[in-house]
Simulated assay, not measured.
Amino acid sequence: MGFLSVLSQAQRWVKERVKPGDAVVDATAGNGSDTLFLARTVGSGGIVYAFDIQNEALENTRRRLDAAEVSEAGRLAEVTLVHAGHETMDDAVASDLHGRIAAVMFNLGYLPGASSTVITEPATTLSALDSALRLLRGGGVLTAVVYPGHEGGQVEADAVQAWASGISLSVAQTVIYRFPQKTVSPYLIALIKR
């Protein structure tokens, strides 16, 4: 048996820190995998915010949630799909939830199955990471899967890693989960807020 994939490891760390009824954020809705995972994890009493700049991503996410709702009626969290960049999360997340968010998940890069020219960008990603850190509660977790293998991906991965490395230990503990034999494979940068 091998190690967990970076996506599975991100979900594992979130599941260890999040409980039913919590409020959480999927900073990059994409095709809805993390949004559905979060909706299941926090359950019917929880709240999920899912951000994406692409209509296609939000529609894919909505379809995934609707399909799950058929078999899991009443067990999923309330999900708010936000058609905006993740850098707007300070404004989009209800002010009474600031400092109370249990988890924020980022899956950077581009929307699988869509144009690879529409990608997450370091400037907006770093702004979003700063917002996410402010929104998290003590003990909350942030996960960011980075993709150095596509055009622009290495620059963003380096920026996210530098951001995480620059966080004071008094604010959060950070970690990198990576397969060193696969230099252009996705890897996970995560933190737990103190």
Rank of each mutant, 00 (worst) to 15 (best):
I176Y: 01
A84F: 02
Q54G: 05
H86M: 06
D34A: 05
L36N: 13
G152N: 10
G138E: 15
L4E: 07
A39W: 09
P112C: 05
G2E: 10
D158E: 14
T35D: 04
L4Q: 10
A39Q: 12
D22E: 11
P122W: 06
S168W: 01
N55Q: 14
L108K: 08
A68S: 12
V42A: 10
N55Y: 04
S168G: 10
E151Q: 14
E59I: 14
Q181K: 13
R40N: 03
G45I: 02
A73R: 13
V14W: 00
M89Y: 04
W163F: 15
G140D: 10
V146S: 02
Y177A: 00
A164D: 02
L65A: 07
T120E: 07
G85D: 12
T41Q: 15
L108P: 15
P122R: 02
L142G: 05
V160T: 13
D26R: 03
E72A: 01
L126M: 13
L111H: 10
V118R: 12
H150A: 08
D96G: 06
S165V: 01
H150G: 07
G113D: 11
V155G: 07
D91W: 09
Y187N: 01
L169E: 15
A84T: 01
M105K: 03
G149F: 12
L81K: 02
V48C: 14
D130P: 00
K15W: 00
L126S: 11
D22A: 15
D90K: 05
Q181T: 09
V82N: 02
A68E: 06
T61Y: 08
T88P: 00
L58A: 05
H150P: 13
G21N: 08
H150R: 07
A132F: 10
P186V: 00
N31S: 09
S116T: 11
T28S: 03
V70P: 01
Y110C: 03
L142S: 09
V79K: 04
D34S: 05
A57Q: 07
G153I: 08
I189R: 01
A39R: 08
A84H: 06
D91M: 11
I101T: 08
A190I: 04
V145A: 08
E56T: 12
L188D: 07
V171P: 03
G85F: 01
P112W: 00
I192G: 01
K193I: 13
V14S: 01
R178S: 09
G74Q: 02
L58C: 02
Q11D: 01
A50W: 06
E56L: 12
T117G: 07
A84D: 08
N107I: 03
N107C: 03
D90E: 11
R137M: 14
I189E: 00
T117A: 08
T120D: 08
D22T: 05
A68P: 14
E69F: 08
G139S: 14
A77P: 06
D96Q: 13
L169P: 09
R12V: 00
L97T: 04
A84R: 09
I176F: 03
A172K: 07
T35V: 06
P148V: 12
G152F: 09
P122T: 05
G138K: 15
R12H: 13
E151T: 15
M89H: 09
T143G: 07
G140S: 11
G139P: 10
F106Q: 00
L108W: 04
V70N: 02
L126E: 10
S127T: 14
L65N: 05
N55G: 13
E151Y: 07
V160G: 06
